[in-house]
């Protein structure tokens, strides 16, 4: 019901937030798949590093800033568990993605080391799952 009576002024930030959330999920999946398969095709490390820097992080920014803008306008969910999950996944993403971007760059520069790209695979895989949990929580709003 909330979706249909939402004031127009909330729509643009919500659009940016949802678009950012969906694209950061897809870009994270692309980085994860690339990192896993770079064991067989090492040149994929460069694709992963570029993806993290030029796709995952900008999409994360769109999601996080759009969400903050929406939250500043709408009182819906204030203090709720589902909004808390969204903030945790969003804010944890900043740290995880910075670490992943650094490790992605290291994996390109130090081609003889395998652990940096393996760590990128673990981080992006875990963050992908966290994003799906946040999507479920923020859409289903369990407990509200």
């Amino acid at each position: 019901m909330v979706a249909i009576i939402r004031p127009d002024s909330w729509n643009f930030p919500l659009f940016l937030h949802v678009l950012g959330a969906a694209t950061v999920t897809g870009a994270t999946a692309a980085a994860f798949v690339g990192a896993v398969l770079s064991r067989r095709w090492p040149w994929l490390r460069r694709v992963v590093a570029r993806t993290l820097l030029l796709a995952v992080f900008p999409a994360w920014l769109l999601m996080r800033l759009g969400g903050a803008w929406e939250d500043s306008r709408s009182p819906i969910g204030d203090g709720s568990t589902w909004l808390g999950i969204g903030y945790i996944v969003g804010d944890a993403g900043f740290v995880l993605l910075i670490v992943a971007m650094i490790l992605g760059a290291v994996s390109v520069r130090k081609a003889e080391r395998r652990w940096p790209i393996q760590a990128v695979a673990v981080i992006t895989g875990a963050y992908f799952v966290a994003l799906l949990v946040a999507m479920f929580a923020m859409t289903g709003k369990p407990g509200s």
Binding site: V18, L19, A21, A22, T23, T25, G26, A27, A29, A30, V33, V47, T51, A55, A59, L132, M135, F136, T139
Partner: peptide, 17 residues
């Protein structure tokens, strides 16, 4: 919404590759 994420996320992934 899960379907929308699969479409938009998949489109992003396809665009990257």
């Amino acid at each position: 919404m899960a379907g929308a994420f699969m479409v938009l996320g998949g489109a992003m992934m396809a665009g990257i590759f």
